[in-house]
Amino acid sequence: MKTEALYFAVRNTKLLVGAGIILVLLGIGVIGPFFIDKPPTEYVGMQMQPPGGEYWLGTNTFGQDLWAQFVHGLRTTFLVGALGGGIAAVIGMVVGFLAGYKGGWIDEILNMLTNIVLVLPTLAVLFILNAYIGVRSAGMQALFIGLTQWPWAARSIRAQTFSLRGRDFVDLARLSGVGSGRIIMREIAPNMSSYLLLTFILLFGGSILIASSLDFIGLGPTDAVSLGLMLQQAHQWSAMHLGLWWWFVPPGAGITLIVGALYVANVGLDEVFNPKLREL
């Protein structure tokens, strides 16, 4: 099974292209800051320089190096995406497994809660939370995003658990006196591990998009530079009207590339795990 998945994985162009783009950008975000000795917000030189040899992505109206901001921004964006997506995936799994496996009134309550959070417009809730509580670090931002993003994951995991619950091997485990927690961890979760991975990837991408909206509206972290914050500053200081396209094109392209690559890799992975979708 493992080797079979690997066999199809290395032959799946969608997965390879998607994963390749993500790895390159992740590499830039992780390693890049070590090659930039100045903090990304420092005023390094000439203002409003177009991209060139010295400043790869040019400088903004304050004379800040946009490449340095981009590199640090990639790091924050990946961090918020992974953390926010991770938290949402964990909550979604706990709620989904519990509701789907336990059934009965636990299911009723959790399902009701899921549906409530599902119809609440996430971003509006985040506005209120961030504005009042004053989320000012990337970690807090990710936490709040995770806390509001989980419902659809919980819903689909619940449905999957529901269909696995009645299988013979689960009944057998229950007959031999294994506890619910162990059954979920040992019998149910491994049977939908590929599905859980896909869910996490989608949540990862979604968190990045939500974070960029939050940053743009002025509720981003103050202790870090992110791609969304770059867009916010570019808009605030009218980069559009000044013709400083190198201020707002690269960060948006970065977000689009990351999220797009995640989605494409997701489709590729789906084809790897699901024999029905494979193109032979």
């Binding site: 991408g205 998009l209 960029s212 909206s213 743009f216 969304g228 867009l231 570019a234 808009h235 559009m240 009207h241 013709g243 396209w245 707002f248 094109v249 960060p251 948006g252 392209a253 977000i255 689009t256 590339l257 990351i258 999220v259 797009g260 995640l262 989605y263 494409v264």
Partner: peptide, 23 residues
């Protein structure tokens, strides 16, 4: 479609405002 759905709303809006409006 994948590119469009991965685009942040604000970025496409900024690109269009810049392209059609400013340039």
């Amino acid at each position: 479609s994948y590119v469009l759905t991965a685009t942040p709303y604000l970025w496409l809006a900024a690109l269009m405002a810049w392209g059609f409006g400013v340039v």
